Amino acid sequence: MQSADKVAALDEIIRQRRTLKVLANEPLPETTPRELVNEIIAAGAWAPFHKPSSTEHRSQMSSFVPWRAYALDAGACHRLRQKLINVGDDTKIVQMLAAATALIQVTWLPNPPKGATDAPFEATLENMEHIAAASAAIQNMLLAATARSFESYWSSGGALRETQVFDWLAIPQKEILLGAIFLFPTDADGVETATGKLREKRGPIESWAKWLT
């Protein structure tokens, strides 16, 4: 593929990426193409990051990157759904878990606080950089999912960011959920879908960018 074709193909994937919430009242058949999900997660590795993660986050997984990814196949999504139902959760998270072919829990790794604080993390420049890097990793994954014909939804987490869910999934409590990435099949029957409400409201480029002289 020539350079211009590569640019056009990338631009088209960026435009095609969309937020789509897929809801099912009962679990869909358990099909998870793990090799494709692994490729999607691997795309996140190429996000830029400015600072390495704190050493306290490297005991379970050793990478310097300031994010972590935890993947659940359809069966694990269904089991997590049932656990949430058992504790009384009746939100759309339960319906999305029923429809998902996979879920990727992406966390970011805050630096340990240097002083006493009740906040989940200190508002430092390095922590801002860690959040930005993890966000870039998520965007890479979303684009990779779009390129592989998955529908996707970046959720802030809801119940999926709670302590008990982290315990169920063996995610360290010192990590903070930045995005629960739901991957959905494109041809599911008996589901309800909802697109992102702000997709067409971002405005023309001139409303949020300008050249400086």
Rank of each mutant, 00 (worst) to 15 (best):
A4M: 13
A4E: 15
D5C: 08
A8F: 14
D11T: 12
D11V: 11
I13Q: 08
R17E: 00
R17W: 04
R18S: 12
T19N: 13
L20A: 10
V22Q: 06
L23K: 05
L23A: 05
P29T: 01
T32H: 04
P33C: 04
R34S: 10
E35H: 11
W46K: 14
W46Y: 15
A47P: 07
F49Q: 09
F49V: 08
P52I: 03
S54M: 08
H57D: 07
S59W: 12
P66H: 01
P66A: 03
L72M: 08
L72Y: 00
D73W: 00
A76T: 04
A76M: 09
R81S: 05
D90V: 13
D90S: 15
T101E: 03
A102E: 03
Q105H: 14
V106L: 06
T107I: 00
W108K: 02
L109Q: 07
L109F: 06
P112N: 02
P113M: 03
K114Q: 12
G115L: 03
D118I: 10
A119D: 06
E122A: 01
E122S: 02
T124E: 03
L125C: 04
M128T: 08
E129H: 00
L143Q: 02
T146H: 02
A147R: 05
S149Q: 12
G158D: 07
A159P: 14
L160R: 01
R161M: 14
E162L: 15
T163Q: 15
V165Q: 04
D167T: 13
L169V: 03
A170E: 15
E175D: 08
I176Q: 05
L178E: 05
L178A: 03
A180T: 01
F182S: 00
L183N: 03
L183W: 00
F184V: 05
A188C: 06
E192V: 11
A194I: 12
G196C: 06
K197M: 10
K201C: 07
I205M: 10
I205W: 06
E206P: 02
E206H: 07
E206V: 07
S207M: 01
S207G: 00
W208H: 11
A209C: 07
K210E: 13
W211N: 11
T213V: 10
